[in-house]
Structures are given as structure tokens and as C-alpha cells.
Design a protein around this nucleic acid. Sequence first.
DNA 1: CCTATACCTGCGCAGTCTTGCAGATATGTG
DNA 2: CACATATCTGCAAGACTGCGCAGGTATAGG
Lengths: 123, 123
Amino acid sequence: MHLVPAERAHRNTIDDHRVCDAIAGIGEPTRVAGWARRFGLLSEPGRLTLLLAVHAAGPISVTDLAIATGMSDTSVSQALRVLRTAGAVEAHRDGRVIRYRLSDPQVHDLLHRLSPCPATTSH
Amino acid sequence: MHLVPAERAHRNTIDDHRVCDAIAGIGEPTRVAGWARRFGLLSEPGRLTLLLAVHAAGPISVTDLAIATGMSDTSVSQALRVLRTAGAVEAHRDGRVIRYRLSDPQVHDLLHRLSPCPATTSH
DNA sequence: CCTATACCTGCGCAGTCTTGCAGATATGTG
DNA sequence: CACATATCTGCAAGACTGCGCAGGTATAGG
């Protein structure tokens, strides 16, 4: 199969079949971009720590997250804003407390691989 | 159990048990940092595309990767340098061609989830 | 209504990262 | 040896990112 786009065909390939395999393996650029964005969310120690905490503790407040992670309230809030905007977590208000939980199944799945999630009843 | 470090104990928690669950779920900071670094490698579209290509095509040259991804030789080389330095891929010289393959099982595993890796004989 | 608590937001600085250019190195060929 | 190919590297510009400070909003309680 000839998966190489016309505009690149003029260049000399070294292993034709590998080029085709590679192109097939890459797939939709939008899908790749989506995953890259997802991984980007997990790439910062602070955010990853928060996600692990949310994953392990379920609906948890900003203050508790700050205590558990040792981060400042502001840092936690800022990081959560990024995660919320990206759709990785969602917020639920309960009085003056706002609790966060995971909202992206794919992210949840990735986190599940990092920490076995011992006895969570949420799934 | 009281997992909250002494220096943070003075602050008012909202749900004590959730704080403890969170701390337990976070685990070793060094481990978290390691995964964050890993995710960071996958967070850039160019690198992720390259990794997917290498994953699908096996030992493949820089030139072929450039053709398959539509990136410039330089960009591919630079990205591969980062991945190589981080231990995600390894290079093997064959004449004037250098072929790359995945060298980090964890990264391999993550990629495997993104594209089912149809008929790779490498494992 | 006034205060305390819980959380959010805008802004500016500093550090990091990606990219492209230009050039260097290494290998095969005649 | 001269040349083409394949890949690597250093450097500088530009974009992006996380962090802390200061201040703003929302809810509960007296």
C-alpha cells in the first residue's frame, strides 16, 4: 500500500514498508493531538500528584488536596482550573466546599495503572 | 491512620479520611516525578507521533520517520535526541543509517494502549 | 450586617521548551 | 580523494508554563 502523501514522495525512503507501517500506526492527527494534550496534563508533578490524590480519595475539597499534597491553596486551585478546563476533573459545590472528582475515563484509566486504586467503591 | 505530616497538621481538614486516602494514593514522590517525566515525553505532538511511528514500524531510520511524519529531518533528530536521552528509545547504527526502537517498557505499554499494534512480531 | 472560611482569578516574573538555521560529523561510492 | 547521503549538534529567537502575590467572589454563622 502507498500511504505516503504525494508531497513527500520525492524523497528517498530507506525502508518503504516501515514508512507505511509508521504512517498506519500514527493514525488520525487529531486523535494524536488529543492524547498529547492529555499526557500534557499528567506531565507536571503537581497536577499528576493532584490527579492521583483525587483518584484515590474520590470527591475531595481544595483545602484537603492542599494539605495532602503540601501545595499552597493557590497552586492547587490553579492546577485544578487547568484540569477542569481540559475536562479531566469536574467540580461539585456543597455549601462553601467544592469537591473534585475525575471526569475523563481515559485519564482515569491511566491513573488506575499508576496506583492500583485499592478499595474504591466508585467503580 | 495519621498520614498527615506534622508541619501541615495545624491546618483544618474538611474530610480527614479523604486526606489520608489521598496521601496513600500519591505514594512515593520520586515515583510520581518519574511518571510525570514520562508523560512529558508523550505530551508533545511531534514526539508522540514519532513514538507511535517507531512503535508501529519497529527499527526505523530518521529519514523514514521524517517522511512518515512530515516533519523536517532536524526536528525528528532533535526530538529523538530528547527521547534517547530520556531512555525512551535507543539507536542502532547500520552503515550510515541509524534505526530507532523503543527501549522503555512503560512507554511501550502506554503506546500499546493508543494503537493496538496490529502484527508486530517484537513481542 | 459583619466576619470567617473556602475557593477563584488576574497579573507579572522567571525558568523551560520547541524550532529553525547553519554547520559539523560519519559512512558509503566512484 | 572528492562527493553525496544520513544524521547530529550549537545557538538564538520565540512561545509556553508554573508560581506567588494581591485581591475578588461565594457561602455559612452570629
